[in-house]
Computed example of a mutant assay.
Amino acid sequence: MLQTKTLEFLKALVQNNNREWFQENRKKYDEAKSDLEKLVGQLIKEVSKFQDLGNLQVKDCIFRINRDVRFSKNKAPYKSNLSAGIGPGGRSSGKIDYYLHIQPNGQSFLGGGMWAPSPEQLAKYRQEVDYNADELKTIIHEQGFREFFPVIHGEVLKTTPKGYAKDHPEIELLKRKELFFVHPFSDKDVTAKDFANNIVKGIKLLKPYCDYMNYILNHTEEQD
């Protein structure tokens, strides 16, 4: 669980997203960050029971709250959320991991999947779907998975991808440029005692999908 004051800090930050206010309230931010670190530490411990995370440390998972505003019209210096990427190698591994997003007013969620793939990775995904989509469909259509992650998120082509027929039996999967799954959490969920357990439940459901996607997106012939 997270403390209510962590969400309260984020709510206040939205209304005061400037460096002067942030520095004046630095102690509150440090407390909120520490609160998230404790939760992530607990998650690493639990996930390590069914997945090898290597020597993953909490610091490897937490994303910075500072925004990169160099190429953005929005010059607000800070994100309005706290977040972490949990998986072998942490947030910067380049692999698909379990993404935890903490944001007040019911905008928190656990997510995972193919998001902003490179052209090469997207081609690998489509090649696999074209060759044999049964394994992927078995994973994402499993009842428990669908109940926890009922909606596929991400960009979808309006037209048929080049090189594939309009009447391809898997055309809807082939049109997808992203295949990301999200389970939302209310503010009440986030501050409940069983919050960590619910996240771990979601991670267990996501694991077969993430394992599958990491294999097809990152596997090379040299590894055979």
Rank of each mutant, 00 (worst) to 15 (best):
M1Y: 10
M1A: 14
L2K: 05
Q3G: 10
Q3C: 08
T4C: 00
T6V: 05
F9I: 01
L10R: 08
K11Q: 09
K11R: 13
K11I: 07
K11M: 11
Q15W: 06
Q15H: 08
N16V: 02
N17L: 11
R19E: 03
F22C: 08
Q23Y: 06
E24N: 02
Y29N: 01
E31N: 07
E31S: 04
E31K: 03
L36E: 09
E37P: 09
L39D: 08
G41Q: 02
I44F: 10
V47D: 13
S48N: 03
S48H: 06
F50A: 06
Q51G: 05
Q51V: 09
D52R: 04
G54H: 00
L56A: 10
D60A: 13
C61A: 10
I62E: 07
N66Q: 07
D68T: 13
F71T: 14
K73E: 15
K73G: 15
K75D: 14
P77K: 06
K79D: 08
N81T: 11
L82A: 05
L82W: 05
L82I: 06
A84G: 11
G89V: 02
G90V: 06
K95V: 08
I96G: 09
L100G: 12
I102E: 12
P104A: 09
P104I: 09
P104N: 12
Q107W: 05
Q107I: 03
S108V: 08
L110G: 14
G112V: 08
M114P: 05
W115I: 12
W115L: 15
A116I: 11
A116V: 15
P119D: 14
Q121L: 04
A123E: 15
K124Y: 10
K124H: 09
Y125T: 06
R126S: 10
Q127I: 08
E128F: 03
V129M: 12
V129E: 13
K137S: 13
T138W: 12
I140M: 04
F148E: 15
F149M: 07
F149N: 10
H153C: 11
G154Y: 00
E155N: 03
E155R: 02
V156G: 00
L157A: 02
L157V: 03
T159Y: 02
G163T: 04
K166W: 00
K166I: 02
D167T: 12
I171N: 04
E172N: 05
K175D: 00
K175G: 00
R176T: 01
R176K: 02
E178Y: 03
V182N: 09
H183E: 14
P184D: 13
F185K: 05
S186R: 04
D187I: 03
D187N: 03
A192Q: 12
A196Y: 10
I199M: 14
I199N: 13
K201V: 08
G202S: 11
G202R: 09
L205K: 14
L206I: 12
P208M: 08
C210K: 10
Y212Q: 06
M213A: 15
Y215C: 14
I216M: 09
I216G: 12
L217G: 13
L217R: 11
N218T: 08
H219Y: 10
E222K: 02
Q223I: 10
